[in-house]
Nucleic acid binder design. Structure first.
Lengths: 206, 206
DNA sequence: CATATACGGAACTCGGCAGTTCCGGATATG
DNA sequence: CATATCCGGAACTGCCGAGTTCCGTATATG
């Protein structure tokens, strides 16, 4: 949903000279994108919902494709603060600590956006790159940190295939949501950690 | 869902009345779908490539959506013959035996089709159901058989979470291809089996 | 051979959306 | 208050693709 500060919804007071409203518009674009997909989304929808004029959007972005590209690229790291990662002392603790409702919701939104642009990714390297660095890389980075820590601790073998292990969580979530149409819940995520990720890391399920 | 026309009472003169070219057209539709996605695909493309008239397609399917739905539904089990599954005597053997170039190619085609319709799945339960039973269920069925056999053999614990285990392979492939844009090869698949699936099943890597 | 029938293909309508233009009004500044 | 600036919104253009119609032709059947 449009997560805009309710405080600013009131009649627009001062007109800003710069592009202050850009983030707001991009958020709306992502919402529409998640709901209708790229082709279903129209510039009018975005403009109307953002209470902006269509011309305003075109003053800022040369085309629909550019708007979407920008929106996807700006989705980066809204949900993850790399400096405030949990450090529980165990791999399982770290992984489970990431299973929080806000994180789950943000993940689902990302997946819906991904579904909305899926058909273009194969034909647009730019969009693919944006999606890669905004949607999949941040999550992988976090996991990489956890697994490296675990290796340093001696908790898992030093020759563990970190890249492969990093994929399991996101892959299972994406598959469940996009392919099976089944939204994930805390239980699914925790048992994925316990039944698959930790065994694959050769760690006994805690 | 290619339902045959009403039984004819009238004399059959002229050309064949059966829709003998349907499968051919549906195959072309799938190709175009995989290449361009649902919205990028036009009826003209399909007609031209199938050397058919656009009118012919509309004589057979009432709309583009129906054509695509039918095409996806008919994708069922082109690649897997449930009666000719390998039975190597070990779980690893069975799983690895499925890693064959034709199977990989068919998987990638299915994933491209999936990507092409991904944005509509959330809004079309019919299409979601078709994709489910034609694209994901067949593969899961095969895996289920392998894991059940392994349990019967006593190779893996009887309380193994078969449903979860079945997902790992497809999930990793889908994630790699759709999200990372990295086509999978035999090495990736085999090491996924050895490093993730078998450990998760509490089997030592063979 | 005669003919009913379906087919390929071309031409057409029609609606929707990307992108453009224009204008009245609100705003900030001096 | 004067004015330069930017915005929201509405009207407009042009294109493209879904769906329709029509016709010449191929073909199986009698």
């Amino acid at each position: 949903m449009t997560q805009v500060d309710e405080a600013e919804v009131k009649p627009r007071l001062g007109r800003k000279r710069d592009h202050t409203r850009d983030p707001e518009i991009l958020e709306v674009a992502l919402d529409v994108l998640a709901e209708t997909g790229y082709d279903g989304m129209t510039i009018d929808m975005v403009a109307t919902r953002a209470k902006a004029g269509k011309a305003t959007l075109y003053r800022r972005w040369p085309s629909k494709a550019d708007l979407v590209l920008d929106a996807v690229a700006c989705m980066k790291s809204k949900d993850i603060d790399l400096d405030a990662l949990p450090d529980t002392g165990t791999l399982r603790g770290d992984l489970v600590a990431m299973v929080k409702p806000p994180s789950i919701r943000e993940s689902e939104r990302k997946l819906k956006v991904m579904a909305g642009i899926a058909s273009m990714i194969a034909r647009s390297p730019e969009l693919a790159a944006a999606a890669q660095s905004a949607l999949v890389e941040p999550r992988a980075s976090v996991n990489r940190i956890f697994f490296r820590r675990a290796i340093e601790r001696g908790e898992i073998p030093a020759d563990a295939d970190v890249e492969r292990l990093c994929m399991i969580g996101p892959a299972m979530v994406a598959y469940s949501v996009l392919m099976l149409g089944k939204p994930v819940d805390r239980e699914f995520l925790v048992s994925t950690i316990d039944k698959i990720i930790l065994p694959a890391a050769r760690l006994p399920t805690a």
